[in-house]
C-alpha cells in the first residue's frame, strides 16, 4: 500500500476546520467583541454602543477603584484556596479510605459522586431551605436539640462565607474523589504486597506508596479545582443573590452578571469579563507550573 495516504492532510482538515470555525465564531469573536465593548458606552444588553467611553479606558480605572470588585476578587481567591483544601483535600482522604476497604467501594463511589448530578440551582434552593432564618432546618435543629433560644441569620456578615462555601465544597468533593480513587486503583497491588512483606504499616504504605504514585493525578485535580473555582456562579447566585449581605459575598462571576443583566451596565460587565479571563489565564499558568506532572 502506498504511504501517500499518510501525506494526504485533507481528511484532517475536514475534521479540524469546522471545530476551528465554531470556536472562532462562538468563543474568540465574542471575546474580541467583549474586549472592544469594555471601552464602549453601552447602557442595555443588545443595545448599540453610544461611542467610546471618555476616557476610553474609564472602565478599567473604575475596576480598580470599585470596592465591590475588590470584594469579588478577594472572595474568588479565597474560594480557590478553600477548593484546594476542602474539595481536593476531603476527596483525597475519602479516596484513600475507600481504596482500603474490600467491600462496598462501589457503593461509596456512587454516594459521594451523586451531588454532581444534581443541578446547582436545585442545590442552591435546597440549601436555602436548610439555612432559612425562620423555620429553617439548621435553626430548628439548634433550637430543638441544642437548646438555642434565638434564630441565627446564616447569611449575615458573620456567617455568610461558610454558608456560601459549604454547598460549593460539598457538591464537587465527589468529582475529585472519583478521579483520585481511579488513580489509586491503577497503582499495582504488588507494590503494596512487597511493602507489607517488608513490614510497612497502613500509614507508611499511604505515605510512601499511594501519595507519591498519585502525584500526577493529584496535580490534575488541583489544576482543575483552581481553574474551576474561578467559574463558580450558579450556586452562589441562587443562595446569595446580589452580594448578600451588604455586598460582601460577590464573586467575580456573580458581580459581572449583576452589572450586565440587572444594572444594564454592559460595558462595565464586559470589563469585568476581561479581568476574569486574564485572572483565569494567569492563575492556570501558575497552577500548571507549580503542579507540573512528573515523568517516572
Amino acid at each position: 500500500m502506498s504511504s501517500t495516504i499518510y501525506k494526504n492532510k485533507l481528511p484532517l482538515l475536514v475534521f479540524l476546520v469546522p471545530a476551528f470555525l465554531m470556536m472562532g465564531l462562538f468563543l474568540y469573536y465574542p471575546f474580541v467583541m467583549n474586549f472592544f465593548n469594555s471601552f464602549s458606552n453601552i447602557s442595555g444588553l443588545g443595545t448599540a454602543a453610544k461611542g467610546l467611553n471618555d476616557p476610553w479606558y474609564a472602565n478599567y480605572i473604575r475596576l480598580f477603584s470599585d470596592p465591590n470588585m475588590r470584594t469579588a476578587i478577594k472572595n474568588s481567591l479565597f474560594l480557590m484556596l478553600m477548593t484546594i483544601v476542602f474539595q481536593v483535600g476531603i476527596a483525597l482522604v475519602l479516596a484513600i479510605f475507600v481504596d482500603m476497604i474490600q467491600k462496598g467501594a462501589q457503593f461509596f463511589r456512587t454516594v459521594y459522586f451523586f451531588p454532581i448530578v444534581i443541578s446547582a440551582t436545585a442545590l442552591g434552593l435546597l440549601f436555602n431551605l436548610i439555612y432559612l432564618y425562620d423555620g429553617g432546618m439548621l435553626n430548628q435543629l439548634l433550637q430543638k436539640v441544642f437548646g438555642f433560644t434565638q434564630n441565627i441569620d446564616w447569611k449575615d456578615q458573620d456567617h455568610f462565607m461558610a454558608t456560601m462555601l459549604t454547598p460549593v465544597m460539598w457538591q464537587y468533593v465527589g468529582f475529585y474523589f472519583v478521579i483520585l480513587v481511579t488513580g489509586l486503583n491503577n497503582i499495582p497491588q504488588e507494590i503494596y504486597e512487597a511493602a507489607s512483606l517488608d513490614g510497612a504499616g497502613t500509614w507508611q504504605r499511604t505515605r510512601f506508596i499511594s501519595l507519591p504514585l498519585l502525584r500526577n493525578v493529584l496535580c490534575t485535580c488541583l489544576v482543575l479545582a483552581i481553574t474551576g473555582a474561578l467559574k463558580v456562579f450558579d450556586l452562589p447566585w441562587v443562595m446569595m443573590g446580589a452580594g448578600i449581605p451588604m455586598d460582601e459575598s460577590w464573586l467575580t462571576g456573580t458581580y459581572m452578571y449583576n452589572q450586565t443583566f440587572l444594572r444594564s451596565d454592559v460595558d462595565y460587565g464586559s470589563t469585568i469579563a476581561v479581568l476574569i479571563v486574564v485572572l483565569g489565564v494567569v492563575i492556570s499558568q501558575i497552577a500548571n507550573k507549580i503542579f507540573r506532572e512528573k515523568e517516572y
Binding site: D134, N151, D153, K155, D156, G241, I244, M246
Partner: peptide
C-alpha cells in the same frame, strides 16, 4: 425583621402568614 438585609421578599412575607 431581624434579617431584613439578607432575607428574600418571600421569606419576610411568610411572617405575615405565620402570625409573626
Amino acid at each position: 425583621p431581624a434579617n431584613t438585609l439578607t432575607a428574600t421578599d418571600a421569606e419576610t412575607f411568610q411572617l405575615m402568614a405565620e402570625d409573626k
